[in-house]
Design a protein around this nucleic acid. Structure first.
Lengths: 123, 123
DNA sequence: TAAACATATGAACAATCATTCATATGAACA
DNA sequence: TGTTCATATGAATGATTGTTCATATGTTTA
C-alpha cells in the first residue's frame, strides 16, 4: 500500500476513508496502464463527429475520398486528414485504382462497438 | 444531388469522380447528424485515459471517490471532475452513505464496448 | 514528357479540455 | 451550533486537436 501515495501528497482521507481491501483488489485486477492508454487512444479516434460520420458512411459502402467529401459536405483536405487518423488506428484500409483511392472499414469490431453506442444513446 | 454541394464550393473532382449512385445511397441510409454527433460525444467521454481507468476500476467494484483516487494515484479533485463528466454522460450512478459517496457503472453496454475495444487493440 | 487531377501533407490558428489550486457544500458528531 | 471531513466546483493554464490554405505527390492520358 505504500506505493499508492508515492509523492507524499497524501490526501487527508487516505488514512481515514480508504477501504484498503477494495483498493488492493482493484489495483491487482485492473489491466495495465499501457493497455488502458491504448483503449483511450482508440476511443479518442471515435470521439469526433467527422470521423464518426466517415465510419458510418463506410458501413454502407466502400468509397473514394471525393465521395466521402460529397456525402459529408466537407473539403477533400479535411476528409483526407481524418482518413489518415483512421488509417493509423488500423480502422480503415484502402485500395488504389488508377488515380482514385477507395477506403473501407478494416475491423469487424467497429460495428459491434457502434451498435452498443447507439443503444446507450437511445436509452 | 443539388443539395450535396450547397455552397458553390464545388471540388474539381465532384463532377468527374463522384459516384452519384453510391453517394446518394449512402446519404439516404446514414443516420441523422444529430445522432452521430451524440455518438461522437459518448466516445469523447471514453477517449481519456483517466476516465478509462476509472471505468475499468468500477468494473471490479463500486468505490468511493477517495478509493478511486488511491487506485489511480491522482488527486481527489481530478477524480471528482472526471466523475462529473461520466455522470453527465449517464455512465455512472452514485449512492450516498453518510459523508461518503459510492460510484458504480450505470450501463450494461459499457462492458461490451470495452471488450470489443480490447479485442481491437490485441489484434 | 507535360498537363490534368485525385489524394496527401505541412504549417498555422482557433477551439476544446484535463489538471491544479483554492474554496464551497453538506453530512456526521461532539 | 461548531468542527471535521468527504466531495464538489469555479477559475486559470498548458496541452491537444480539427480545419483551412497552400502545396506536394503520384497516376493517367494526350
Amino acid at each position: 500500500m505504500a506505493e499508492i501515495n508515492k509523492e507524499n501528497t497524501v490526501e487527508k482521507c487516505s488514512e481515514e476513508c480508504v477501504h484498503g481491501e477494495i483498493v488492493e483488489k482493484v489495483c491487482s485486477r485492473i489491466p495495465d496502464d499501457e493497455i488502458l492508454y491504448d483503449v483511450a487512444e482508440l476511443f479518442k479516434v471515435f470521439g469526433d463527429s467527422t470521423r464518426v460520420r466517415i465510419i458510418c458512411a463506410l458501413f454502407e459502402s466502400e468509397m473514394c475520398v471525393c465521395d466521402i467529401a460529397a456525402v459529408l459536405n466537407m473539403t477533400q483536405s479535411a476528409i483526407s486528414h481524418q482518413l489518415r487518423v483512421l488509417k493509423q488506428a488500423r480502422l480503415v484500409k484502402y485500395r488504389r485504382e488508377g488515380k482514385t483511392v477507395y477506403y473501407s472499414l478494416a475491423d469487424k469490431h467497429i460495428q459491434t462497438i457502434f451498435n452498443q453506442a447507439f443503444e446507450h444513446i437511445m436509452e
